[in-house]
Nucleic acid binder design. Structure first.
Lengths: 202, 202
DNA sequence: GTCTATATTAAGATAGAC
DNA sequence: GTCTATCTTAATATAGAC
């Protein structure tokens, strides 16, 4: 789908991808059907297959179109900024993404839990290189005594897991907090702020 | 399957559940087929359905037989023990479960991400009650000044997310650590020990 | 570009012999 | 209890009219 598109094509493709995100993120790839995506998009099933050659193609298009956005917050971590603030800001952005884009988070979670069959190359390549580069930045901050000495890779994993948990395990979080917090995010932010502040203070 | 069983029945049921765990944890419920489970168990497809009435029944039997084991570490948290040590021990046991039972972790993760259709009652009931009870224990420790003032529910969420991440996102963790750590767990343990020690110290 | 109708295959489940 | 063969349904994908 790299050809130039008319307005109606563009609009339908966007509609399909949004419907597919809704469905795939909730039921996983195999658990989702073209009928569900057709229903969610308001288009007919054969019409989906006019825009995409197959169900798989829709899924792949979704994953790759979202991968960049997903990694943007980590890319934004600036080696020239204030170390503790840069890491906290990265955590905040990730937490906001869980809150504002939970479907995207669950789409990736489903994919990775099931062995990342469709995005393994990206993980082994682009993602690993980005993480390694940022881990070096963090290691430099540690060497300069700006933050406490923690394993940079595991620090990044912990930011991922702590923030994505609120999107991926949303049902469980809300069940457990029922009657206490209607919106888990304000408390999550306060808790994670404290956690990372204490962790990173030398 | 509450009737008394012969030895051969018992053995086959165990074999089926183990094969089902292998398959369901990797592909999710809908992504798994009875053919795959039959192949993994060494039994024929109709034979699976001699022991269980349906695919769904196998999945439900798996989930409920594992739920208890899954919550045991939290149950073991002792209000009369040393507060910081009890919480650290809980985290350690959860990390060991990720390392030793990653399939179980992914089975639950798949289920919860997709909205927990089959275990919502348990989450709203048994799980919530257990967490609320343990949150009270933690709150008492805080009131007594034994540990720092952190939100008990979010503390428990953070233990879940940080430890289960190593099982659920195993593929990603290992890809990112390729060439650095063959086994992520020793570094994970050291990192999480530091994290929770700093967090909980008043 | 969009639809109805349909071909094709995969997967859950059952029948019935042994 | 276990198997081969088969029924049935659901789901991907295509054909062909408009």
């Amino acid at each position: 789908m790299t050809q130039p598109r008319t307005r109606i094509q563009q609009k339908n493709i966007t509609t399909i991808l949004d419907a597919a995100l809704e469905v795939f993120s909730q039921y996983g790839y195999r658990g989702s059907t073209l009928d569900q995506i057709a229903l969610a998009s308001g288009l007919s099933k054969p019409n989906l297959l006019y825009y995409f050659p197959s169900k798989d193609a829709i899924h792949i298009a979704l994953l790759s179109s979202l991968m960049d956005t997903w990694l943007d917050p980590l890319r934004a971590m600036d080696s020239k900024g204030d170390p503790k603030q840069e890491i906290l800001s990265y955590m905040h952005r990730k937490l906001e993404m869980s809150r504002d884009y939970p479907r995207e988070s669950r789409l990736f979670a489903n994919e990775i839990i099931q062995g990342a069959p469709r995005i393994k190359e990206t993980i082994n390549g682009e993602l690993k290189e980005l993480v390694d580069a940022k881990a070096k930045v963090i290691q430099n901050w540690i060497s300069e005594g700006k933050i406490a000495n923690v394993n940079p890779h595991h620090l990044i994993f912990s930011i991922w897991s702590l923030t994505q948990h609120y999107a991926d395990f949303d049902v469980q979080v809300r069940s457990v907090l029922a009657g206490k917090e209607d919106d888990p995010y304000p408390e999550a932010k306060a808790y994670l702020d404290l956690l990372f502040t204490k962790l990173l203070t030398p």
